[in-house]
Design a protein around this nucleic acid. Sequence first.
RNA 1: UGGGGUAUAGCCAAGUGGUAAGGCACCGGUUUUUGGUAUCGGUAUGCGCAGGUUCGAAUCCUGCUACCCCAGCCA
Length: 559
Amino acid sequence: MTTETTPAPNFIRNQVREELEGGQVASIVTRFPPEPNGFLHIGHAKSICLNFGLAEETGGQCHMRFDDTNPAKEEQVYIDAIKADVNWLGFEWAGPVRFASDYFDQLYAWAQHLVREGLAYVDDLSPDEIREYRGTLTEPGTPSPYRERDADESLDLLERMRQGEFAEGGRVLRAKIDMASSNINLRDPILYRIRHATHHQTGDNWHIYPSYDFTHGQSDAIEGITHSLCTLEFEDHRPLYEWFLHNLPVPARPRQIEFARLNLNYTLTSKRKLKLLVDEGIVDGWDDPRMPTISGMRRRGYTPASIRKFCDMVGVSRSDSGLVDIAMLTHAIRSDLEDNAPRAMCVLRPLKVVLTNVADDFEETYDVAGHPARDDMPVRKVPLTRELYIDHHDFMEEPPKKFFRLAPGKEVRLRNSYVIRCDEVIKDDAGEVVELRCSVDFDTLGRNPEGRKVKGVLHWVSAVHGIPVEVRLYDNLFTVEQPDRDKDADFFDHLNPESLITCRAIAEPSLAGTAPETRFQFERVGYFCTDRYASTPEKPVFNRTVGLKDTWAKIRKKG
RNA sequence: UGGGGUAUAGCCAAGUGGUAAGGCACCGGUUUUUGGUAUCGGUAUGCGCAGGUUCGAAUCCUGCUACCCCAGCCA
């Protein structure tokens, strides 16, 4: 873990600190409450960092609680993945993993309590009828004909709902609040609905399941959560959250505080839409390196520290129009890897170079530092032979101005080795450049040539000792900043056809035997990480996490 | 045209009556055997708009405007 600075101030953190200092609370308890219906993404990382970070920072606790009230959408695989993601990010929850379903008995008892108090009733209206009775944004709703039903009858019906006596959609339990409320959430919200589904935690024990609104606040209360942090779209639910706490004999009074969710350009941060990409086979699973999921980013080569740093950079506020520039994310990972990734040379698009003024069996091996600014990384052996490879992109037959890479008659420094000059260009029948014949200036090892400046430095790999590796170049999945901006247009229309390009590359021999999930900087190219699953020490597969900044590309674009 | 929110630079964001932090991006200089890194400097006479209060306003008041969320038996 790299050193982390004091978290930036934000309104939640400020409030918590004031309460702590003022003695309103002795210590805080937060919670991270995902529904296990998909993988966690970068937006969840923001919430995780906020909830766990706040607890950590103040000596409080953060619970891990699955909000598992909808068995139709939830699966055990998601539970496992979510737990692994949170741990990988570097956080530990206090106590056991909790489930809202742990509280189903208590919740049911509280539902009965509300019925007895005349604050809830079983409604026989159909889903369509309920919608009609609810009214609209500008028109009040109409009370259900079952609203004043006898408490005993509701109690009996509720129990029979629980036993599985009725069909799905046949009946619901509703709170009796205010059908004319300007806040639609208060127009007799649904507390329980019938679902004849097997639940991943409770099996077939239940035929009714509580709604989010009836579950969340009370679960918070049961666990002694002091601060229940959620996103802005739940703001309208807060009066309901508080209504339950007020009308039920709950053991504590948690408070809900909302913050703005994270939006990233060129990225989808919606579990539902990410699931579509997976289901449609656009990507290779939830943890495809192009996915903004935590596990996808992990596979891509992001570090936990870089994701935490990103969340800290982004901050926490209530501004809701926010669209964060993905450049912030790439900055976070680059700065981590700049400091911590060992260097290596790897040629992505090999172009053969033959050194003409050395013997056929010429060979020199250099001891090269693993990292230019750190001496704790092992020195690697880098061999130079008569034949070697450079990257095709580093040669131009007719170079534009300011191109200080290789071109006919021009000189260039081979990184960690000599200056060479391109004397001859060999082409195949199709006119493609297939080989360069170059001469070595033997006076330039470890020192600059006399009387002239050689500005270009190229990475290279010995043709004799280099090892073949697979390199996967990943880029944004979408070509537009807001792929899901248009409500009716399909975000599938904005897919980037070049989000994955595979190269058969040649790497320096020190990369042989690299274990999965090892990170490197390929000098002059970018940061790479061996794939967790596809890479083996025998056949390494490198995923590009992010490229190095490319000033030359910028100059060229400008013309 | 109901209710709930939000507006500070291209982007994120601090700031809660005392004269606009910081980061990203961008532009320029220096260093450099990675066109990387590092380092130095530049970038809001201005805080959605218009009034008002005040010695003093991004902060308080009034009135506008724009955008986001809500009519699932999803969370």
